[in-house]
Amino acid sequence: MPVKIIIAWLALCWMPACFAVQDADAPKQTVRTISSGDMLHWAAGLLVVLAVFFFCVWGMRKLSGISTHGSEKMRVVGALSLGVREKVILLQVGRKQLVLGVTPGRIDALHVLEGEDCLNNNDCMDAGAAAGQDSKFSAIVKQVMKGQANG
């Protein structure tokens, strides 16, 4: 047991002394101070990184506005607010019309209108042809909104 203690003591005491002798022979490096040129380089690098980040954000906003090939076949025909957070929306998808109930946490398909059941038969026959015309549903929504504005 005393042999292990002696070896451990020699290892702990002599090893740092050996490294200290080697470090004393090596040339010492001077500590470099931070200059204003270094600060300008860091600031310029930070500005470049931020500029690239904001350019990417701007590009993503612009690209999200690009319509895809099939998006012309889907449009909101009308909407009616039932409360502060609840709405009923009439959505034209191709030749079908969907009546959707929209709440903050959920969207439910209330009814699907096809063919003769569509609120505006011109829209069901040709979805893109009557885009500028008001449907019966949107006329009712406008009338209700005028009534709320007057009352």
Rank of each mutant, 00 (worst) to 15 (best):
Q133G: 01
G105I: 05
N121C: 05
V48P: 02
I6S: 12
Q133V: 04
V21S: 04
C56D: 09
E116V: 03
M1H: 07
R85K: 13
I7A: 15
L46F: 10
F54V: 11
R75T: 00
T103K: 06
K87R: 14
M15N: 13
V76K: 09
G115R: 01
A20N: 10
I6P: 11
S81K: 00
C18I: 14
A129R: 12
V3I: 08
K136M: 13
L100D: 09
S71P: 01
A24Q: 10
I5Q: 01
V57W: 08
M74H: 06
R95S: 09
M125K: 04
V52H: 12
I34G: 04
S81T: 06
R95Q: 08
S135G: 11
Q92N: 03
W9Q: 11
N121A: 06
S67H: 02
R85F: 13
M15V: 15
G65E: 09
Q29V: 03
I6Y: 14
D134A: 14
M1N: 02
Q143S: 14
V102N: 06
M74T: 12
A130E: 02
T68Q: 08
T103H: 10
D123T: 03
I89L: 12
V31I: 07
C13R: 12
I107G: 08
S71E: 03
L46D: 07
L46Y: 12
A109R: 13
W9R: 13
N150Y: 12
L82N: 03
H69S: 02
E114I: 02
V112I: 06
V102R: 12
I140N: 15
Q143T: 08
A109L: 11
G45Q: 10
V144N: 05
Q92T: 00
